[in-house]
Amino acid sequence: MWRWNRLPWRRRVSSAVSQLFLYTALLIVIFIVACAIVPGWIAPYEPTQMMTDAILQAPSAAHLFGTDYFGRDIFSVVVHGSRDSLLIGFASVLVGGLVGSALGILAGYAGGLVDTITMRAVDILMAVPGVLLALSVAAALGPGLLNIALAVAVASIPGYARVMRGQVMSVKNLPFITATRSLGGSNARIFWKHVLPHSLSPLLVMATLGVGTSILTGSGLSFLGLGVLKEIPDWGALLSQGRGYLTVAWWICTFPGLAITLFVLAVNLIGDDIRDRLDPKVKGAA
């Protein structure tokens, strides 16, 4: 009797489905990034154009995502609003990843008192829920694109620090590192030539997955009124503006929410694929 898990085509079908999801995710990310870079080429209307004869119009051929209470084309506003949403996501990952990784690398490689002090400071940040920490920082700094990115970055620092500390501690105790040290290799040379290059894979994966989380957090802050105060709102601000019209114009909230969901899901799928390709355990199992 044939078992399902022994059928040779099962793995091929699974691989084909995985590739299909991956390519779809790549297309979604490329399209949304294109929306952020050249929104004027994609949006059919100006995001601030108010069509008084088409207020709260449902999705149609003329307005794919409908219009809002000002008569603005929702699709055009979503396309133009992608720029600030993506800037928050990528900038916060860049800042949080650099600061958190530097702290983790310092603690993991130096060890001793430096490790204790650094990680106790990280533990204090971890004691506060990430969203609450970002909310507190954003409330203290005030609305603005840079401030929101910094708030989300601060909330992400503990995660990067702990991951990089663990990775560096495991790499620096590998046999070839010990052999290099016994042959007279300096600490600086060992760190830059061996420890750091072998510790970057988890950082790349975590940063990729962190983009989606950062966009979600930034959208949440915008939804609460701490986002970017501009004529062209980001996705979170669009959700906040449309929540009062859910019963009469569901499309105002639905399509910005779908944009956030699709982009976060696509980035997570790409991050999972990068993790599978870089993880030697997964390679060996395949």
Score class of each variant (00 low, 15 high):
Thr213Lys: 02
Gly212Pro: 03
Glu231Ala: 14
Gln57Asn: 13
Gly108Asn: 06
Val33Arg: 15
Leu238Phe: 13
Leu145Ala: 07
Val248Gly: 10
Ala121Trp: 06
Trp250His: 09
Val264Lys: 02
Ala155Trp: 01
Ala134Arg: 00
Asp272Ala: 13
Met169Val: 10
Gly144Phe: 09
Phe191Leu: 15
Leu56Tyr: 11
Trp192Gly: 09
Gly40Asp: 13
Leu229Pro: 06
Ser18Glu: 08
Arg277Gly: 10
Ser201Gly: 01
Met119Gln: 05
Ile270Val: 14
Val154Ile: 09
Trp250Tyr: 10
Ile260Arg: 06
Ala102Asn: 08
Trp192Tyr: 12
Ala134His: 00
Asp272Cys: 11
Leu229Tyr: 13
Gly212Arg: 00
Asp272His: 10
Ser101Lys: 04
Glu231Pro: 10
Gly185Asp: 14
Leu221Asn: 03
Arg120Ser: 01
Ala285Phe: 07
Ile30His: 13
Pro44Thr: 04
Leu226Pro: 14
Thr52Arg: 07
Leu200His: 01
Gly244Cys: 12
Ile252Met: 07
Ser136Trp: 08
Tyr160Glu: 09
Ile28Lys: 13
Glu231Asp: 15
His198Val: 02
Phe223Lys: 01
Gly242Gln: 07
Leu133Ala: 04
Arg189Gln: 14
Thr208Gly: 10
Asp73Ile: 10
Gln241Pro: 06
Gly184Asp: 13
Ile88Gln: 07
Leu27Val: 14
Thr180His: 12
Pro256Asp: 04
Gly96Asp: 09
Met51Thr: 01
Thr24His: 07
Leu94Ile: 15
Phe70Thr: 11
Arg72Met: 14
Val122Lys: 00
Leu20Ala: 08
Arg10Tyr: 01
Leu27Gly: 09
Gly185Lys: 12
Ser14His: 04
Ala34Cys: 15
Ile55Phe: 11
Met119Ile: 03
Thr118Lys: 01
Val264Phe: 04
Gln19Thr: 10
Val78Ala: 13
Pro143Arg: 09
Val77Thr: 15
Leu141Tyr: 02
Ile105Asn: 04
Val122Tyr: 00
Leu278Asn: 04
Ser136Ile: 08
Ile30Val: 15
Asp53Tyr: 12
Leu269Lys: 14
Ala188Arg: 12
Val99Gly: 00
Thr217Lys: 02
Gln241Asn: 11
Ala155Glu: 00
Pro280Met: 01
Leu86Phe: 11
Ala91Trp: 12
Ser240Glu: 13
Ala43His: 05
Thr217Asp: 07
Ile252His: 06
Ala286Arg: 04
Ala107Lys: 00
Ser222Val: 10
Ile28Ala: 15
Thr116Ser: 02
Ile274Ala: 08
Ala36His: 14
Gln49Gly: 00
Met50Leu: 06
Val131Asn: 09
Thr208Asn: 05
Ala237Asp: 15
Leu125Asp: 03
Leu133Asn: 01
Ser156Gln: 07
Leu238Asn: 09
Gly40Asn: 13
Gly227Pro: 08
Val38Leu: 14
Gly218Val: 02
Met169Arg: 10
Pro8Phe: 02
Leu7Thr: 03
Gly225Lys: 07
Ala237Phe: 11
Thr52Val: 03
Ala127Arg: 04
Pro175Glu: 12
Glu46Met: 10
